[in-house]
Computed example of a mutant assay.
Amino acid sequence: MAKRHDFNFEGGEILSKIAAWWLVSYKYYLEIDAEHFNWSKNLTDNSINSRKSNYERSTQYHEKWLKEVLKMNQLDKHKNSGNLSGNEIKSMARELIKKLENQ
């Protein structure tokens, strides 16, 4: 099992439980593309349910976290179960930020 990364910004302890790649992928599924299912690949139901619970209780941080994702330089360091590259994660985050800022 991979070691959880601790994020040093507001709400980072919750994002550590979710994973940055998962936050972006799941939010992208909800907000942009209902056919995007990378967030659910290779995860147990328990893991998905836990991440969803943490996601739902942390909505006040999501926009800030998406902006933090854009600053992350090592998104490709650890493979994620959604098989998303760092560039893909950042591209989705940019699209989500744009949508949030236009609401």
Rank of each mutant, 00 (worst) to 15 (best):
residue 52 K to F: 15
residue 24 V to A: 01
residue 53 S to V: 00
residue 66 L to T: 12
residue 94 R to D: 14
residue 18 I to Y: 11
residue 14 I to D: 05
residue 15 L to D: 09
residue 7 F to M: 03
residue 49 N to K: 03
residue 62 H to Q: 05
residue 100 L to W: 13
residue 24 V to T: 15
residue 4 R to L: 05
residue 79 K to G: 11
residue 5 H to E: 13
residue 67 K to R: 09
residue 99 K to H: 12
residue 100 L to Y: 15
residue 76 D to C: 07
residue 37 F to Y: 15
residue 57 R to K: 05
residue 91 S to K: 01
residue 35 E to P: 04
residue 23 L to F: 12
residue 55 Y to F: 15
residue 14 I to H: 08
residue 89 I to N: 15
residue 98 K to V: 09
residue 43 L to V: 15
residue 98 K to Y: 06
residue 14 I to E: 03
residue 40 S to E: 12
residue 49 N to A: 05
residue 38 N to W: 15
residue 99 K to Y: 14
residue 71 K to N: 11
residue 50 S to K: 02
residue 94 R to L: 11
residue 31 E to A: 01
residue 80 N to I: 00
residue 75 L to K: 06
residue 53 S to D: 09
residue 15 L to G: 03
residue 69 V to F: 12
residue 1 M to L: 04
residue 91 S to T: 12
residue 58 S to D: 03
residue 71 K to D: 08
residue 30 L to K: 04
residue 100 L to R: 12
residue 46 N to E: 13
residue 95 E to W: 03
residue 10 E to N: 07
residue 42 N to A: 09
residue 22 W to T: 00
residue 95 E to N: 03
residue 78 H to N: 13
residue 91 S to N: 11
residue 9 F to Y: 14
residue 87 N to G: 04
residue 24 V to Q: 06
residue 10 E to Y: 02
residue 37 F to G: 02
residue 102 N to A: 03
residue 72 M to G: 06
residue 51 R to Q: 11
residue 48 I to A: 10
residue 28 Y to K: 04
residue 14 I to W: 09
residue 35 E to T: 13
residue 97 I to P: 06
residue 6 D to Q: 05
residue 48 I to T: 05
